[in-house]
Simulated assay, not measured.
Amino acid sequence: MSRRRTHPRTLAQRALLYLLLAVVAVVPLFPLYWLVISAFKTPAEFVTIPPTWFPASPTFDQVNAALTQVPFAQSMMNSVIIAGGATISVLITSILAGYVFAKYQFRGKNLMFWGIVATMFLPPIVTLVPLYYLVNSMGLSDSYIGVLLPWLANAFGIFLMRQFIMDVPDELIEAARLDGASEFRIVWQFVVPLIKPAVVTLAVFMFVFSWNNFLWPLTILRTEAMYPVVLTLNRLMSYTMSFDYQNVVIAGALIASLPTLIVFLISQRVFVQGIASSGVKG
């Protein structure tokens, strides 16, 4: 049987589509590429005009300087504690609250839910001063708990979990109740596996947000030993008055970006499924 030949016009359209997709992919990836090559350039090559597209003599001096000029390892650990704690807390509170709003009926449910959603539209700067006075009055300033307290629950997470849990069949939940399963067991053993893409999506969003959060840690923390990596990078900025240290800051930014990139690469398949599902839901 002879194979069906593809029409030349179809081939041209497909090639044009692939070319367009390649251009679209290159645009967001180019800053990351420039960050990587700049971190390994020498100071002299870094300021060369026109710029070079590949390091002529790759060096790790900038990386070593970024790691030694400031307590980078300690700040990375601080960021892991803060971002990890906030992510776990938001997942727990969002799943439980989303389950209640999706499957329980009680007076004032809709008013309470949309009131929570309305807080998503408040600019963070508006709540900064009240949050500071609240945390400071509790004696939690300059502590991990003080940094985490405003992010233990998240309105977007509650909204996202509620939307996905609403699609979980009520018959499944009722059957689990008839078998004697507790509400917590129903949530973690039956509901969560069915909304895994949404859970992973929320985890990635929350981890990246907490990792990159700058303003609130700067407001509440005073001890430099507790600074997350974004605040430690700010200390490196003092060296940018010299061209010799501009790529040191870039090297530090590259190191600080690695955990979020790793988290995304590990979870990308399920993350894309979650984004696609939320898009279909509208």
Rank of each mutant, 00 (worst) to 15 (best):
G180E: 10
L172I: 05
R107W: 15
A176T: 02
N64P: 01
W114K: 10
I173E: 08
F190S: 09
S75L: 09
K103D: 08
T93N: 04
L134D: 04
T93E: 01
L111H: 10
M161F: 07
G146I: 13
Q189V: 13
I92E: 04
A56M: 07
L172H: 01
S79Q: 04
N78M: 05
F113I: 05
P197K: 04
Y132R: 13
M76Q: 08
G180R: 15
F164I: 01
G115A: 11
L111F: 11
F113E: 06
V63C: 11
L194G: 10
M77V: 14
V129L: 11
T68A: 12
P124T: 04
R107H: 14
M166K: 06
M166G: 04
F106V: 01
E174Q: 00
P55W: 01
A153N: 02
Q69V: 12
P123F: 00
M138G: 11
D179C: 00
V80N: 03
P130L: 07
N110Y: 15
P150R: 09
Y132P: 14
V63Q: 10
F184H: 07
I165E: 03
R185H: 12
D61K: 04
T59F: 02
S89W: 11
K109F: 14
M166W: 08
G180Y: 15
Y133D: 08
F184C: 03
V100L: 04
V80G: 04
M166V: 09
K103Y: 14
S143E: 07
P130E: 01
S79N: 06
Q74L: 08
S141H: 11
A155S: 09
F164T: 02
P169T: 09
Q69P: 10
V135Y: 03
M120H: 08
G139I: 11
G157K: 04
L152Y: 06
A176V: 01
P169S: 05
F113R: 03
V129Q: 08
K109G: 06
D179P: 00
I92A: 05
L96V: 12
V135L: 03
I145F: 14
T127V: 12
Y104H: 14
Y99D: 01
S75A: 09
L67Q: 13
